[in-house]
Amino acid sequence: MTTQVAYLEDIVLVDRCLDGQEVAARDLFRRHRARVHGSLYRVLGSNTDMEDLLQEVFVQVFGSLRSWRAEASLATWIDRIAVRVAWRSIGRRRARPPEEELGDHDAIAPEVGGSRAVHAREGVRRLYAALATLSPSARIAFALHEIDGRPLAEVATVTGASLTATKLRVWRARRALHALAAADPVLREFLADAPAPGGAR
């Protein structure tokens, strides 16, 4: 019944939003912002422009809310929009000079300090530099599955791809990253526990 109740809550919440209730719009944003933020961050590797991206996602969400037909959960529907926004952002970032990327160094947990922090930061920087060489579809699939921890089926759903295609994208991304790591000790160490290309999860 939990899923059903959550589903009904979605329906009710959307209905209240469409009734013009501002408090409902705030509630929707607060319920979903952390997950959307996490996904965008894990795909893009930076909080650069994050507020703009979140705004872009939720403006689209509210603008299209009437078209939500409850065929999927509201979270899944919102995540699809977030993936599109991430996709676009990747395209925009590719047009920027590389030094503008990962400039905020905020990808490391605050409790990690000293040389470990520097090392971890460098690992993250190299991971996302490597991810930037992949196709957007492979990058998004890998980031959502391997970094954001979503099941492959869920990744397939939010990216609109088949499960097979999603597996293939993740596998290609792993293969490419491990190839890059072979020549990069820092990245190799950072990916030490990540599944090898042949690994299944």
Binding site: H37, G38, Y41, R42, G45, N47, M50, E51, D106, A107, I108, A109, P110, A120, G123, V124, L127, E146, I147, D148, G149, F190, L191, D193, A194
Partner: peptide, 13 residues
């Protein structure tokens, strides 16, 4: 430690 653990999401203020 998974990749997700190594790439924590810093919260927005």
């Amino acid at each position: 430690m998974t990749l997700g653990d190594r790439v924590p999401v810093p919260p927005l203020a």
